[in-house]
Write a protein that binds this DNA or RNA. Structure first.
Lengths: 235, 235
DNA sequence: AATCATAAAAAATTCTAAAGGCCTTTTATT
DNA sequence: AATAAAAGGCCTTTAGAATTTTTTATGATT
């Protein structure tokens, strides 16, 4: 149900599984990633795993220390705040560019409508049946925002934004296991965003987007964020 | 003479060599990276090389296609412009934060002075004897700019800025093989930057920095930038 | 009890060798 | 000339073993 294509290379599929397990918290923040345990859990050889983990290190999901191996990147409120701020900087700038880029607006807007439709469907589901759609919602929400910036004309900006939003969404997913979905408010914001995007009302979009991103922020009461730090068995 | 620490892991050292060879153009933009050839050239096994190359893929220096292997990321004026713009966005924002962050200013300014001194030394050398110091200058210039943003308080911002500036410096190094060093002008800009940094004159710093980054831009006449595209033997 | 040294166990790093798969090119056939 | 079959090259992945390093356990010393 998650993995459709069997022709996918081992490396690619392990990469996706590992990243997904980190984002959803199946691998806890801070947890040590021992190669032998992973070898069994993901049915891949040590070499393939190292290759994959190194990618995740560069992506910011995994830490690596010489001779001591890998561990899941810990979470912290400071890190979340930093990512939020970066996301705002990159996403606002990229959305502005997307809107100012007049060529190919029709295709872009059509993609926006399509992404928004999918997001809307899943948000409705989320309001009835919370937990079971978290992952689908994460993907749909990310897709919508990625589509918004996709027309900005800068591949590098798109790349860095994608990287930041992926790290950011990890916090969203982890948080959704401990607090309810924002629900109607979020749905309305997405609705408004789409409307103003289609109507070329740049400033409205940027204003709403700015606060939309801000409101997604979930700072746990104390410093509770290190959700689980004890290393649990992984094999 | 380049590698001091022999205890360094093979993977780490190969990573640095490979990246350096890409930045300096010893590996040409677009060049196919065949594992067997690399295995000989870098005295490392296929596994170690794949591990390393995957890191460079995530870092943006190498391309990877399933079943077709790796190749050096091509260069283009569009890519350079994108990186320039990203660098400006991130660096200006981070330097402002660094200057507004009042804690530990003494240590920061001391690091700035130290980095500037090294840069100044090398820039003097550069004006006499061009070619032989390109790499040292690249490092010193990058160090100075990295130090400027190092006090901004956001590890993530620092990380993304470092990533962008490394990709950007590749163009600087490649360009320095075809056009003279900017010389006195650059020296004076760095001098002014330091002065205003030490005097807490934020707006002056940002103004100078903005144009300083812009002036570093070298856009070849036509679309000549693909410096060398033919794949030369690498073993 | 705290500290240090030492030995044993666990984990990481890396390489070789080899099987199997995909892609491209060459060759052969219609 | 078009298409099919075969060949060769390169990528992908695994397994196993040799080294080195880190961690843990144990025991001796202060």
């Amino acid at each position: 149900m998650i993995n459709s294509d069997d022709r996918k290379l081992v490396g690619q599929s392990v990469y996706e599984q590992l990243r997904s397990d980190i984002v959803t918290g199946k691998l806890s923040p801070g947890e040590k990633l021992k190669l032998n345990a992973l070898r069994i859990r993901y049915s891949a050889s040590v070499n393939t795993l190292r290759e994959t983990l190194m990618r995740l290190v560069s992506d910011g999901f995994v830490l690596f220390v010489d001779q001591k191996g890998f561990s899941v990147k810990p979470v912290s409120t400071a890190d979340l705040r930093e990512l939020l701020e970066l996301r705002q900087m990159l996403e606002l700038s990229a959305v502005r560019k997307s809107m100012e880029n007049k060529a190919g607006q029709m295709e872009w807007k059509s993609a926006l409508i399509s992404a928004h439709f999918r997001l809307n469907c899943i948000e409705k589901l989320m309001m009835e049946d919370e937990g079971s759609h978290v992952q689908a919602w994460e993907k749909a929400d990310r897709d919508f925002h990625v589509t918004m910036v996709s027309h900005c004309g800068s591949q590098q900006l798109i790349r860095y934004h994608a990287s930041v939003i992926e790290l950011y969404m990890r916090y969203q997913v982890l948080a959704l296991h401990r607090r309810p979905f924002r629900g109607q408010a979020s749905v309305e914001e997405h609705q408004k965003l789409l409307k103003h995007l289609l109507d070329d009302e740049t400033e409205s979009v940027l204003t709403i987007l700015d606060s939309h991103i801000q409101k997604g922020l979930f700072l746990p009461d104390a410093e509770k964020i290190p959700l689980k730090v004890k290393s649990k068995a992984i094999a």
